[in-house]
């Protein structure tokens, strides 16, 4: 068969992994953030807006600062600023998380598009390619480590990707083994108990939402700096919502978030990869595959996607 001979080549698998990482890492950062706030009981529908804020400011930082790290920091800063709105309105004042989230998404979409087109619409500047940092020895492994045709797989990535993967493991450890993680989980499971234990629910949730904002901002910044090499209005194309889906499917477990993000990333990049392999498949079909798979799994296995009981409910001391 023609198909088989074209698919089972090293270059095909290298590009699958490379493309999956490139598209999956922004999702991973953002979904890890959502996992934190979801576990703490705050549903962050504003993720899309926070990602876009991070993407635009990350682009600005990298463009004017001339350095990817300035960009990432700017993206994190923008994400934190956007999430401050959510902290103030949803955590402190206890307003509805879904309404405020939609507002943040709308405002984020609008303001980044307007600012970009007001300033850059004529020139549409591009950022340079990122240098990757191959890990010695590991980068000689075929498929996983060896770059082919400029496709850089797992062990030949920019430093920020390694940092992100490490962070996921750290986060898993924090959730499972530390007091901070216990507090976060309690804030989502039974905030009253956390309050009774003498820990402030509001403070716990505030930090969780700020962490979410910074990670979403970082995800957006990575998307702009490494993913597309520039900013475009509506750059994220629903990835913020995808991250929410990923965090919910992973039930807030960081390692599963990483796995699901990379799977979604591979699906997102699959149409170009398949084209390289000479297989014509409508991009729409490939795009809808991960969602269709999830829906099918939900129908077939029909188990409850577990969500913290106090999710999306504001905590008011003494309220019944």
């Amino acid at each position: 068969m023609i198909l088989a001979s074209q698919v089972w080549t090293q270059i095909f698998w290298t590009s699958v992994i490379a493309g999956g990482l490139l598209a999956g890492v922004p999702l991973m950062f953002t979904a890890l953030g959502e996992a934190i706030s979801e576990r703490a009981g705050v549903l962050n529908i504003g993720l899309e807006g926070m990602m876009l804020a991070g993407a635009y400011c990350g682009f600005l930082g990298a463009y004017y600062g001339g350095n990817q790290w300035v960009g990432y920091l700017a993206g994190i800063g923008a994400g934190i600023l956007a999430s401050l709105i959510m902290v103030a309105l949803c955590v402190w004042l206890g307003l509805d998380q879904i309404v405020v989230g939609i507002a943040i998404t709308l405002a984020g979409e609008g303001i980044t598009s307007v600012l970009y087109q007001a300033r850059f619409s004529a020139e549409q500047p591009r950022l340079g390619n990122l240098d990757s940092n191959p890990i010695p020895l590991l980068d000689r492994i075929p498929v996983l480590g060896k770059a082919i045709n400029g496709q850089t797989p797992l062990f030949d990535q920019p430093l920020i990707v390694y940092l992100g993967l490490t962070f996921a493991f750290v986060l898993a450890w924090v959730f499972r083994r530390t007091n901070v993680g216990l507090n976060l989980r309690a804030a989502g499971e039974k905030p009253e108990a956390l309050d009774a234990a003498g820990v402030s629910v509001v403070a716990t949730r505030s930090y969780a939402v700020l962490a979410t904002g910074s990670l979403a901002g970082l995800g957006g910044a990575y998307l702009a700096i490494a993913g597309t090499g520039g900013f475009q209005p509506f750059l994220t194309q629903g990835q913020g919502f995808m991250a929410i889906v990923i965090a919910m499917l992973a039930r807030g477990r960081p390692i599963r978030v990483v796995v699901f993000s990379l799977m979604f990333g591979i699906a997102l990049s699959l149409s170009t990869v398949l084209q390289l392999a000479g297989i014509e498949l409508a991009p729409e079909v490939v795009n809808m595959l991960p969602f269709a798979a999830v829906i099918l799994a939900l129908i077939l296995f029909a188990r409850r996607a577990y969500l913290p009981p106090a999710l999306a409910l504001a905590y008011v001391r003494g309220a019944r």
Partner: peptide, 17 residues
């Protein structure tokens, strides 16, 4: 861009809450 309307609508929603 007409996306400036998104900003207005988002702001309306925030102020409403």
């Amino acid at each position: 861009p007409t996306d400036v309307l998104y900003v207005l609508v988002g702001l309306i929603l925030l102020f409403m809450t």
